[in-house]
Design a binder for these strands. Structure first.
Length: 191
DNA sequence: CCAGTGATTCTCT
DNA sequence: GAGAATCACTGGC
């Protein structure tokens, strides 16, 4: 289990290190294979224009969840980070499902493991995450976050689905994973 | 490729 | 306060 101090750093660093970590919610989840970083200087970030009711969790304690509704339909799950309330977070975009397959298949209404958690909206549906989990700490149950073993190969490239800050290479993906929301692009990173 | 979907936020009275 | 634009997406064509 990762401790609170693990999150007291910038979003790009955390987003990189989270690749290969295991995320569970009520024992259901898997290995993080895709993340994106957002911070307050970033025009694509919800925190760019300062605190609002929706993004309040981004200005709260590091190591807590920021969950928001996307396109009026889906939920997206972020991990707040930074040395204090700096408006930074990591969007968790995809998991390789490893625990609680049946629960995820039931919530998603399909069986293909590649489609259970491949995308931020799908991931939240599979794990049962929604607004009521906004602001909860990831350092305590029902969340469990376990660090990666070793140094998985990570690619860094442009983020998905944004119209501003499109050049910033803050999407991180496990190289070669078949569980990504879209194919990995970008350059290999050393850790 | 593109339509659905509705909350959120911005801008202007 | 009202009207309008903007979405950190998904699924079906």
């Amino acid at each position: 289990m990762i401790g609170a101090d693990y999150f007291a750093r910038d979003a790009a660093s955390l987003a990189h290190d989270l690749i290969g970590a295991t995320l569970l919610f009520h024992g259901v989840g898997g290995v993080i294979v895709e993340t994106e970083a957002y911070d307050q200087e970033d025009p694509a970030s919800h925190s760019f224009r300062g605190p609002t009711p929706r993004n309040a969790a981004m200005f709260g304690p590091a190591g807590h969840a920021y969950v928001y509704r996307s396109y009026g339909v889906h939920w997206c799950f972020n991990i707040v980070c930074g040395p204090g309330p700096t408006g930074q977070a990591v969007l968790v975009r995809a998991l390789e499902p490893t625990q609680g397959l049946a629960a995820m298949q039931g919530r998603r209404g399909l069986a293909d493991p590649r489609l259970l958690c491949a995308g931020p909206g799908r991931l939240c549906q599979a794990l049962g995450l929604s607004r009521e989990h906004d602001g909860l700490p990831l350092t305590r149950p029902p969340f469990h976050l376990l660090p990666a073993h070793g140094r998985p190969p990570v690619l860094a490239g442009p983020r998905i689905g944004i119209t501003k800050g499109v050049e910033t290479p803050w999407r991180f993906a496990l190289a070669g994973s078949p569980y990504l929301s879209r194919p990995a692009r970008g350059v290999p990173l050393q850790r």
